[in-house]
Write a protein that binds this DNA or RNA. Sequence first.
DNA 1: CGCAATTACCTAGCATTACTAGGTATGGGA
DNA 2: TCCCATACCTAGTAATGCTAGGTAATTGCG
Lengths: 107, 107
Amino acid sequence: MGNEPLKGHLDLLVLACLENEPLHGYAIIDSLKQRSSGFFDLPEGTVYPVLHRLEKAKLLTSRWSQQSSRRRRVYRLTRAGKAALAEQTLQWSQFSLAVAGVVGATS
Amino acid sequence: MGNEPLKGHLDLLVLACLENEPLHGYAIIDSLKQRSSGFFDLPEGTVYPVLHRLEKAKLLTSRWSQQSSRRRRVYRLTRAGKAALAEQTLQWSQFSLAVAGVVGATS
DNA sequence: CGCAATTACCTAGCATTACTAGGTATGGGA
DNA sequence: TCCCATACCTAGTAATGCTAGGTAATTGCG
C-alpha cells in the first residue's frame, strides 16, 4: 500500500496495453485493471502524465477520436514505441529473474 | 539504463540478503550482485541510505563488528524485519504476476 | 618499504516519477 | 431534470535511487 512498486514499470504496462489496439486514456486504465485482475487500479493522475510523457518521447501518437460522441484522445504505438515495448519487456523479464534470484536464494 | 526499475523493490532485496545471515553493507552489495548473477551492481550511495532507512524503521539492527580488523557495521533482521520480508515477498509475487498478466496478454 | 588499490563507510543534493487533490466538461440513465 | 460515470487535465508533493563527492584503514604488489 504505502510503497510504490511500479516505479519504472508503468511505461511498460501502458505500452503493453496499446500493443494490439489504440486506446484512449480512460480505456487504458480499464485495460490495466482487467488484465491484472484488479491489481492495477490506477488513478487518472498517474496515467495521463505517463501518456503525455510517452508521446513527448515519440513512443506514442495521439488524436482526438471522431468515432465516439465523447471527447476522447486515442493513443497509438509508434514504431519506436513498439521497439521500446519489446526492449522493456525483455528488461522486465531480466529484472524479474534477478529479483527471483535474490529473494529465492533461501533454498 | 535510464529508467529505475528497482524503485520500491530495493527494500525487499536488501531484506532478503539478510534473511539467513547478518551482513555488513559492502557484503550486501556483493551478495546482491552474486545472487542476481551480476544484474544488481548497486553503488554504495544507493545501498547505505536504504540500510539507514530500514534501521530507522526498526526492520534492522546494527552494530560495529569486532570480528574483523576492518571497521564494519553489521546489520541483522529484527522480528519486524522478518515479517516485512515475508510480506514484501508476497507482494512481489503478486506484483510480478500482475505485470505478467498485462504484458503477456498478447497471446 | 612505499604506494596504490580495495575495502568500508558516509552524506548532500539531484532527478525522476507516482500520486494527491484539485479542476472542467459532457453524455446517459433514473 | 439531475446525478453519476465518463473523460480529460495539471500543479504540487513525497519518496527514493543515484551521482558525486568525501574520509580512513587495510592489503597486496613491486
